[in-house]
């Protein structure tokens, strides 16, 4: 536990340092109120999805179909809304669809015993093909403002999506530390045999987390949709990688058993700060991926070094 506290503070320190550097480079524009809000809004989809991904990775799983689920949900609700479905119904359909897609992942992983990376790689391809089928290769544009409201609406001049994200984060921090299912997730990741013998229903938990993750991806899809105002067949491509990066930078162990929602939140903020800062300081955007990749390597290897020292 001490280790995570330390890690989270290191990353927070890193974020603050970056904010100062970017602010100096952009002569204050970076630290302006509107830009900070912008960074948060950009981070919302990653943060909400990272909650589900954190749970999955804690059980030593992984879900690379996240981006395709975001794309399929986003495209489906857009197409439906253009055909005149009332937006609140559309929201429900989107959440159910996300849950269903996640449930299907769990079916492959639990019932067919396919390794999570392989199962979700397969569904990543299948779901992406479905996006193209739903869209017919065309953009969806001109959706009703009500549908886009989750991502674009504001309350007291603050974007609604930020409130939504904060609510999700607070609830799931509570969920992971106090609720039985939350503790079971850690138990499974730490020692699956011990969890089984102490009566944890592993199958149920696996189904729960993948389905929940699917629902959370659907929420992210609404947030992205509201921000961009249009849905393309490529919507969400590469999104899963950003989410996984945020989660592992935030200290979740890819081998399972350790990880926190707070860590993933901070990891996602770091990713968002860097992406925004690179654009504002006129660094070629081609470098964003480079920085992200380097960051993952640095974060994990320092983790390994710290752990080695503690063992020694």
């Amino acid at each position: 536990m001490q280790l995570f506290k330390r890690r989270e503070s290191i990353i927070l320190f890193f974020i603050v340092a970056l904010i100062i550097i970017f602010s100096i480079v952009t002569s204050g524009r970076f630290a302006s109120y509107s830009n900070i809000i912008q960074i948060l809004v950009n981070a919302v989809p990653i943060i909400i999805s990272s909650i589900g991904m954190t749970m999955i990775i804690i059980t030593a799983g992984i879900d690379v179909s996240a981006g395709s689920i975001v794309g399929l949900v986003g495209m489906t609700v857009s197409v439906l809304s253009l055909q005149g479905i009332w937006s609140p119904y559309d929201w429900i359909i989107g959440l159910l669809l996300g849950g269903l897609l996640g449930f299907f992942n769990a079916l492959l992983i639990w019932n067919l015993k396919i390794a999570p990376i392989i199962a979700t790689l397969a569904t990543m391809g299948i779901y992406r093909s479905l996006v193209f089928t739903v869209s017919g290769g065309r953009w969806a544009i001109g959706m009703p403002t009500l549908l886009l409201w989750i991502g674009s609406g504001t309350i007291f001049n603050i974007p609604f999506s930020i409130f939504l994200m904060v609510a999700f984060v607070i609830y799931f921090i509570y969920f992971m530390s106090k609720r039985v299912t939350g503790r079971n997730i850690y138990a499974i990741g730490n020692n699956i045999e011990a969890a089984r013998t102490s009566g944890v229903s592993i199958g149920k938990t696996i189904f729960f987390i993948y389905t929940l993750a699917g629902v959370l991806y659907a929420v992210s899809a609404f947030a992205i949709l509201g921000r961009t105002g249009l849905a393309q067949s490529t919507m969400g491509t590469g999104f899963e990688l950003e989410v996984i990066a945020a989660v592992v930078i935030g200290g979740t162990n890819i081998l399972g058993g350790e990880g926190t929602i707070v860590g993933s939140l901070i990891g996602a903020l770091l990713v968002a700060v860097i992406e925004d800062g690179i654009v504002l300081s006129n660094i070629p955007p081609l470098l964003t991926d480079f920085v992200l990749g380097a960051l993952i390597l640095i974060a994990i290897s320092t983790d390994v070094i710290i752990k080695r020292r503690e063992i020694a």
């Binding site: 592992v248 993952i296 994990i300 390994v304």
Partner: peptide, 21 residues
């Protein structure tokens, strides 16, 4: 560095494609 292969190659996937660009 003992970084799990999934993470290493995820990171280098970013690095190499960005370098290519």
């Amino acid at each position: 560095a003992k970084i799990p292969p999934l993470l290493t190659t995820l990171a280098t996937m970013y690095l190499y494609s960005s370098l290519a660009l």
